[in-house]
Computed example of a mutant assay.
Amino acid sequence: MLKEIIVVEGKSDTAAIKRAVEAETIETGGSAINQAVYEKIRLALKRRGVIIFTDPDHAGERLRRLITARFPGCKQAFLSQEETTKNGDVGIENATPEMIRKALENLKTDYQSAESEITQDDLMDAGLLVHPDAAARREAMGRLLGIGYANGKQFLKRCQMFQITRKEFEEALKLFREEGFQ
């Protein structure tokens, strides 16, 4: 059983997690989050640790930001929209057990006050900002770095929050280019 408690959006996500690993979850009840849920997360973080594992869509990213702002130091698991989409529906509940296990093996921990080696200029040089295909490029780089998809501003914040090193960024960029992105 995982030591940490996984924060997910709903019952279907809990079911998918339990098909993949032995773990306990806290369900937020969707994109809304109330004080009782915050209290459960606070207690879980204090006693066992927390992994945030929300859907890679607007509502899931909003929840991730709300929880992270209130509880710095949570571990985070990410899957891409591609990995979690089934019949047009995006959600952790659509991921395979193998994908969920892989995401849980590649956890990131946020460090709110960290200085990153990655700058906005690095993102520009990699075509992750102000490029006709910037969104697709960030999706691919986010997958390779294990930080998920984000808009340009949030992508830089995630690089900082998760202390992505220049070496990690350059290695991901090399794989990114091997995948056909130039």
Rank of each mutant, 00 (worst) to 15 (best):
L45V: 09
L45Q: 15
L45Y: 06
L45T: 04
L45R: 01
K46W: 09
K46L: 15
R47I: 14
R48I: 07
R48H: 15
R48N: 14
R48V: 10
R48A: 15
R48K: 15
R48L: 14
R48Y: 15
G49W: 05
V50C: 05
V50R: 02
I51M: 08
I52C: 09
I52P: 01
I52N: 01
I52R: 01
T54E: 02
T54G: 04
T54P: 08
T54L: 06
D55G: 13
D55R: 12
D55E: 13
P56D: 07
P56Q: 10
D57V: 13
D57F: 12
H58Y: 14
H58E: 12
A59N: 09
A59D: 13
A59E: 12
G60Q: 09
G60P: 08
G60K: 09
G60Y: 08
G60H: 07
G60V: 08
E61C: 05
E61G: 04
R62L: 13
R62K: 14
R62Y: 04
L63C: 04
L63E: 01
R64K: 14
R65N: 05
R65H: 09
R65Y: 05
L66C: 00
L66N: 02
I67M: 10
I67L: 12
I67W: 02
I67G: 02
I67A: 10
I67D: 04
T68D: 11
T68F: 01
T68G: 07
T68N: 04
A69W: 04
A69N: 14
A69V: 07
R70Q: 12
R70K: 15
R70C: 05
R70H: 06
R70L: 11
F71M: 05
F71K: 00
P72I: 06
G73A: 05
G73I: 06
C74R: 00
C74H: 00
